[in-house]
Computed example of a mutant assay.
Amino acid sequence: MSERTGIFQGADPFEIARSWLAEATETEINDPNAMAMATVDADGMPNVRMVLLKDIEADAFVFYTNYESQKASELDSAGKAGFVLHWKSLRRQVRVRGLVEREEGPQADAYYHSRSLKSRLGAWASKQSRPLSSRTSLMAEVAKVTATHGTNPQRPPFWGGYRIKPLEIEFWADGAYRLHDRFQWRRENLSSDWVIQRLNP
């Protein structure tokens, strides 16, 4: 394997990802933590949508959503997902594939309570991914849950986090003449050691 230097250097891929995200926070205009997440439905048909990465833990990537949404149904059914973080300003990306588990404990409560009140009420009001007759009906539902749950709503039982534990992480940086630098970290299972290799662009 080629020696990894510069932005690719380090023994911990999660630390490298945190470092790249911190750099992107300084250069990206909007949502440096936006990631395109891919799932598959029961028929194997893929779905991709943007979600916001909220934490890079010691061994996982965490985001939050409605557990009754289509994405949650697909995550729960397959138990696997992939995502890519792409930063145009840095000309870099991180690709991840791995296993999924729910985060619906105190950590999910803490993140929910860190959100704005309108976002917390919106989580109660939205029946995510399901048909909606009009925006007016959605705003009426927001008013209804505001009256019901007040100014300090608890986390809905149908809303929480997911933790993606990678089996593969790829770090990619743009290179001259389309000769990009790519390093893949791969492991057979979550308790295995990482195998690192450089990939052709």
Rank of each mutant, 00 (worst) to 15 (best):
G82D: 03
E103Y: 07
D76F: 07
R49K: 15
V51N: 02
A72Y: 00
K80V: 12
D59T: 15
A72P: 00
T65C: 09
G44I: 13
A78H: 04
D59R: 01
A60N: 00
K71A: 04
G79W: 05
V100D: 09
T65K: 07
Q70R: 15
M50P: 09
G82T: 07
P46E: 09
R95H: 08
V48M: 07
W87D: 04
N66C: 11
V84G: 05
R97P: 05
G79K: 08
D55L: 13
L53R: 00
G82A: 15
A78F: 02
E74Y: 02
S69P: 01
K71E: 02
H86E: 01
L75K: 09
R95F: 08
R49M: 14
K54T: 06
R49L: 13
L75I: 09
V84S: 05
H86D: 01
A78G: 04
T65M: 02
K54C: 07
L85F: 15
K88D: 06
G79E: 05
K71T: 10
S73D: 07
K54W: 04
R92T: 04
R95M: 10
E68D: 14
V100L: 09
W87C: 01
K71M: 10
M50C: 14
S77G: 12
V100Q: 06
A72W: 00
H86M: 02
M45Y: 06
M45S: 04
E68L: 11
L85G: 01
K54N: 10
E74V: 10
S69Q: 03
K54Y: 06
N47K: 15
S73V: 08
N47I: 06
E68A: 10
Q93A: 09
S89I: 09
D55F: 13
E68N: 14
M50S: 12
E68P: 10
V51G: 05
E101G: 07
D59Y: 14
N47E: 11
R91Q: 15
